[in-house]
Nucleic acid binder design. Structure first.
Lengths: 221, 221
DNA sequence: CGGCACAATTCACATAAGTTTGCTTTACCA
DNA sequence: TGGTAAAGCAAACTTATGTGAATTGTGCCG
């Protein structure tokens, strides 16, 4: 396959752990679809603090915005070894020649992103460490299940406790504490890159505390 | 102007404080543009916790998603008396008969929303109470300035300390503590629905701690 | 003008979560 | 296969922030 043909069609790229899929403000002429491995979009403070904004799992598209802006906003790093397919913008646009159709697809993706972020603003702002972690683990479990990556009650869990900490906005030590408790209570087991969910219902109860507001006044107390 | 004509064109609605501009999952056939007053989109926990997800100031459009989904997802409540113009979807779509053009407008709005939420996930996850508050106040100041609502170093600040708490994800009491400190340090003055920014630079320094990541590895410590 | 409700303030105390450090286990590479 | 670095784990201690409750302003409506 010639260089030109690779440009015109999609091609596969692989990244080692800690390698960048994209750097901040880098020009992008492709959208990446993760085929294997996990990646994360994050933001740093010079003093070392890191907050992961978005997690990308197998099957996910990294950043539909690229299509619109032609550039990444935040860096994306591989949390594990990653295999991803790079889809040139031109090719995506060509696939749906009817303008409106391809637009709709992008819009839907953005609505989903928007909803996810809504949820995480809520989590980070008003949930305890335990609630956030349970919520995250449930979400991951569900996302993997949707992609047929859950066997029995087990799924891959390649995130380190440092990664988890940087997602739920707490310290790694505290992540460990909470996980110990959850394990002790028989809710789940995190061992060697794998997660076994022993009591999904309980986990969801802990993590999904939010409800739609009733007819009352907000903060009427 | 007859009732029918008002339906076909835009019309103005007013809301008292604590009144809903929209309830969760309510059908919407208009997009609201705030003309006067402040409103907020939020999410509750039954036990009383509230997290504000988005703040709407004069000039803001509430929820471009409505255009796409035809319904609100989260409730929106008036934090002050609000005057808003309701723009029927049909009218908006008609204004830009060239499909692509109106789409682009909506997409841009969503990109902005997405960026804002990125920022707040970061703030809530990794910034201290003081940093978050400074950041918020700077943001509000800038937004009001962009709308020509800052005179000298003063602008309106109709949010109660409870509201502020529910935005930055801390307790009202702690909001008060931080505000006292900022006032004591001569950075700003919050008094009677008005904010006077005495040292914008210092405020920004406290609030805008984040930087683009250098060439190093994230979390390489 | 006076009262009433809500907002701001303050203080004493409680606690969740951060920090530091050291040890142990695991995973990975030569 | 063993050595090395990263990850997990644990305990002691510190700190930021939360809670509860009481006090003082402040604006608003009759």
């Amino acid at each position: 396959m010639t260089q030109e043909m690779q440009q015109a069609t999609s091609h596969v790229r692989t990244f080692r752990r800690h390698e960048f899929l994209a750097r901040a403000d880098e020009r992008q002429n492709c959208v990446l679809r993760i085929e294997e491995g996990w990646a994360a979009q994050y933001r740093l403070v010079p003093d070392g603090r890191r907050q992961i904004i978005t997690l990308f799992l197998p099957g996910d598209y990294c950043e539909p915005q690229w299509l619109l802006q032609g550039r990444a906003t935040l860096p994306i790093v591989a949390l594990t070894r990653v295999r991803a397919r790079a889809l040139p913008h031109a090719r995506i646009q060509a696939r749906a020649p009817h303008e409106e159709d391809s637009m709709t697809r992008v819009l839907d993706a953005m609505l989903v992103l928007l909803r996810n972020r809504e949820k995480w603003i809520f989590n980070l702002g008003r949930m305890t460490a335990t609630e956030r972690l349970c919520n995250l683990l449930c979400e991951l479990y569900a996302r993997l299940q949707a992609r047929n990556r859950v066997v029995q009650d087990r799924c891959a869990m390649p995130l380190t406790q440092y990664d988890l900490a940087d997602i739920v906005g707490i310290s790694p030590v505290h992540v460990n504490r909470v996980l110990q408790t959850l394990r002790g209570d028989g809710l789940l087991d995190l061992k060697g890159r794998w997660m076994q969910v022993r009591d999904l219902a309980a986990l969801q109860r802990l993590g999904d505390v939010a409800t739609e507001p009733g007819p009352g006044m907000p903060r009427a107390a």
